[in-house]
């Protein structure tokens, strides 16, 4: 500030970082900020029809303020959808992350045979596209085609579990890999020291590995929360096979239905803003709760 010359040079240099940033900023503006802005704009509007609604000019777009939001929040189906997804998400989160952690710990244990092969086979389902995986499981679930006999996997009572199973099957490998990679980065000295102190493998896992893994576990949890809140592929793909999944089973399915089935883009825009807000609150809320413990801050 005080040295003018230096200040001028700093100013010139100051433009350079922005130039480097420009492509990223432009992409961000084009592909994130602008669409979100457009969605907000749409969510404040709606079409108004006059008379029969046929012929030219019978339909125009009007500004309706927060009407679409009021309708979105006031729709019981959206909240019923959230309830279904929360139940499903709790199931997926606990089972998937539990299994991922278990597998990662087992693979990291000293004496394990065929580690490479096991790791790849657990990870492999993640490489199967969601639609393909769901269709495959869907066929296994259908009573007359299923090798598991005549069990009603897609009945109202079991459909949530059947769907959670698809997500667990597909997602465990990825989460395991994240946790396993984090484990490999831990210096082996810790374990040696623990062993000299007389700790068993189980004790090492519980007292050393899991505490060290906490940040990675939190990371995978946040990713999984976001993914389950946005569950769409599994129920949408299974829906044609059974009559136990409605078109509004999950909140995102409701958005899809509004936008592309019943043709109300404006309601869909408002509902997606509501969903985005809830996802933000859920994931940041979780981060906030666990931050101090996980990263030793504060």
């Amino acid at each position: 500030m005080t040295h003018r010359k230096k200040g001028a040079r700093a100013h010139r240099a100051g433009a350079v970082p922005y130039m480097f940033l420009a492509p990223a900023m432009a992409l961000f503006a084009l592909f994130l900020a602008l669409p979100i802005g457009y969605t907000v704009y749409l969510s404040l509007r709606r079409t108004r029809v006059s008379g029969l609604g046929l012929g030219r000019g019978a339909r125009k777009e009007i500004f309706v303020g927060l009407d679409n939001y009021a309708a979105a929040v006031g729709d019981g189906e959206l909240w019923a959808g959230w309830l279904r997804v929360l139940g499903y998400g709790a199931l997926v989160l606990v089972v998937m992350l539990g299994l991922a952690l278990l597998f990662a710990l087992m693979l990291d244990a000293a004496k394990v045979r065929l580690a490479r092969f096991t790791r790849i086979s657990i990870f492999l389902p993640y490489a199967v596209p969601g639609v393909a995986a769901t269709l495959m499981w869907g066929f296994l679930y259908l009573p007359s085609l299923s090798p598991f006999g005549d069990r009603p996997f897609l009945s109202a009572d079991l459909v949530t579990f059947s769907m959670a199973n698809v997500a667990v099957w597909g997602g465990t490998g990825f989460n395991m890999l994240v946790l396993y990679t984090a484990l490999r980065a831990v210096p082996r000295d810790y374990y040696e020291a623990a062993r000299i102190d007389g700790a068993s493998e189980v004790q090492i896992a519980l007292r050393i590995k899991i505490p060290i893994l906490t940040p990675a576990i939190i990371l995978t949890t946040v990713f999984s929360v976001i993914a389950t809140v946005q569950v769409f592929t599994e129920p949408t793909t299974l829906r044609p096979l059974t009559n136990t999944i409605s078109s509004t089973w999950s909140p995102l399915m409701k958005v899809y239905r509004d936008a592309f089935v019943t043709g109300d883009l404006y309601a869909a825009a408002a509902t997606s803003m509501v969903i985005a807000a809830i996802s933000l609150v859920l994931s940041f809320g979780f981060l906030r709760v666990v931050k101090n413990r996980a990263f030793g801050e504060g």
């Binding site: 669409p35 769409f232 996802s279």
Partner: peptide
């Protein structure tokens, strides 16, 4: 898990705008 669907939807809407 695989794609951020809100982003996907947003991109679709953007494409429509353009």
């Amino acid at each position: 898990m695989r794609i951020n669907r809100l982003t996907a939807a947003a991109v679709a809407i953007l494409a429509a705008t353009f």
